[in-house]
């Protein structure tokens, strides 16, 4: 028992130091010590978790597809759609939980369709999911006539905006629960281990007797479902569904996953990595808001950080290649 905890600690430590993203987070935390802001208040730190929750939950799903050497750029559209359908069904008189369940099923269905194209038909994941995201945006506009729709059921709003014990935001708790669940799925089930094998080498995994098509397909279904959950949570947080949500989400989330260290080549990475990767982007926004930096400059900084971290990552790999 103790050795397993020790080895877990060692593994975590190694995973942390290997990543540039962790260094970026530590640098930001240290930097904020020198400024007199409200950054180091429990309110703000909990707020960071709350704000990160939606993108983090999407990232947990996307990580599954990225580990299996795919990617999912349709998440922006799925997120938009699930929020809108949940609210419209509720406003149509359906009970809240049924509406939410159906919305999540719609997300899973879209994941299923993505999986059909990518896994069964072996299309390039990147381009087909990009097209799918575009299609879903159109569906969202058609459904809402491009107007935002707000929910009349006040219970819905409480899901994301409530606080457990009046302190910890529900969203943060939901995010952590999902994070642990997906981590366990990847780490302790044959499904999760098979995903790594498929990402590492598709053909080898196939000849080792892994049901590659089904396993990878399930990853896409899960990604769609998790994104739909995040979409419902976002709509609950704002009490509104709108077709303009999520224009940037797809690239931002996939970028965060890669910034964390999950490789697009597949077979490497995991939930802690993705969590950290997206946390870098969220913390950066929060720090800059605290320091009162103008929004356009914030965008520059975000771009520079993304380029910088991925540049360092590539550079490290290049040096390793040359050493061998």
């Amino acid at each position: 028992m103790q050795t397993s905890i020790l080895s877990f600690g060692k593994r975590t430590l190694r995973a942390l130091t290997r990543q540039k993203a962790v260094i970026a987070i530590i640098a930001m935390l240290i930097l904020m010590l020198f400024f007199k802001t409200n950054f180091y208040t429990s309110y703000n730190l909990l707020n960071v978790l709350k704000d990160a929750a939606v993108n983090e939950i999407i990232a947990f799903g996307v990580t599954l597809t990225v580990i299996a050497a795919g990617c999912d750029l349709s998440v922006g559209g799925v997120m938009c759609l699930s929020g809108i359908t949940a609210i419209q069904m509720m406003n149509g008189g359906m009970s809240m939980w049924l509406a939410i369940t159906l919305s999540i099923l719609i997300g899973a269905l879209i994941g299923f369709i993505n999986g059909f194209f990518v896994v069964q038909q072996r299309t390039e994941a990147f381009i087909i999911t990009l097209g799918m995201g575009m299609l879903l945006k159109g569906v969202c506009q058609q459904l809402t006539d491009a107007h935002p729709v707000s929910c009349t059921n006040m219970e819905f709003m409480k899901i994301a905006n409530g606080k457990i014990g009046g302190v910890i935001p529900n969203l943060a708790v939901i995010m952590i629960v999902f994070g642990v669940l997906v981590y366990a799925l990847l780490r302790y089930t044959s499904f999760g281990r098979n995903l790594y094998a498929i990402g590492g080498d598709y053909e080898v995994a196939k000849y080792s007797g892994i049901n590659v098509v089904t396993t990878k397909w399930i990853a896409f279904v899960l990604s769609g479902a998790m994104t739909a959950i995040a979409g419902v949570l976002l709509s609950s947080k704002l009490n509104t569904g709108s077709s303009i949500y999520g224009d940037d989400t797809a690239l931002m989330v996939n970028c965060g996953v890669v910034v964390g260290g999950t490789s697009f080549a597949g077979g490497v990475g995991g939930i802690p990595e993705s969590f950290i990767g997206l946390m870098v982007l969220q913390l950066l926004t929060n720090c800059m808001n605290m320091l009162g930096i103008a929004p356009y400059l914030q965008q520059v900084a975000q771009g520079v950080v993304i380029v910088g971290i991925i540049w360092l990552d590539c550079f490290g790999r290049k040096r390793k290649r040359e050493d061998v």
């Binding site: 690239l251 910034v259 380029v307 991925i310």
Partner: peptide
């Protein structure tokens, strides 16, 4: 070139960052 990015995915994210800039 300076970081030796050779794959499409690396180029994807680096140019995405450049686009933001």
């Amino acid at each position: 070139i300076s970081c030796g990015a050779l794959t499409q995915a690396e180029a994807l994210f680096i140019t995405y960052g450049m686009s933001a800039v």
